[in-house]
Amino acid sequence: MPTIVSVDDSTVPGEGSSRLLLLVSSDNKHIVVEEDIMSRSRFISKQVEGFEATSQRHAILLPFSSFVLNKVIEYCSHYRGYYLLEDDPDAAPPGRSPVREWDQEFLDVDRNMLLRIIKAAHYLEIKSLVGSCARAIADMIRGKTTEEMREILGVENDFTPEEEHSPSSKCTG
């Protein structure tokens, strides 16, 4: 669970009308961000709901590095004020998530970074980002053979020969 601490007003410079949040990454970097930007994160929103509307800033400790956190903040900043159906808790889940061009460029990162971002997005409950990352990973392995998928994502074949070749183990018989 993240630790939430209230930070005295004087510790963090404030700007703008939106409340400020202090996000602390696992490598102990302090990142100040406007609450509006992070409102896309249901996790953050739920934390903030508990705060009173005071002039105090609120710090949230997060279990991922500042590098990953900055990427997530970049995503949230880009879509600040945008309505994304996937992030609407009241909307029905979209049947087919849209492909957003900006997201594709944003997620043009190496495989490990992509996995870190999706994990962070999942932790922060940013469904649109989880969806975009999942699509990017799916794009990596779509159309590949099972062996190629293993190779791309560093997974070993841990089936016994019997499990692998038994008709009952096949998904569709």
Binding site: K119, V130, C133
Partner: peptide, 9 residues
């Protein structure tokens, strides 16, 4: 790394 993804993801 892929195994560290939550099952839902």
């Amino acid at each position: 790394p892929i195994a560290r993804l939550p099952p839902e993801a």
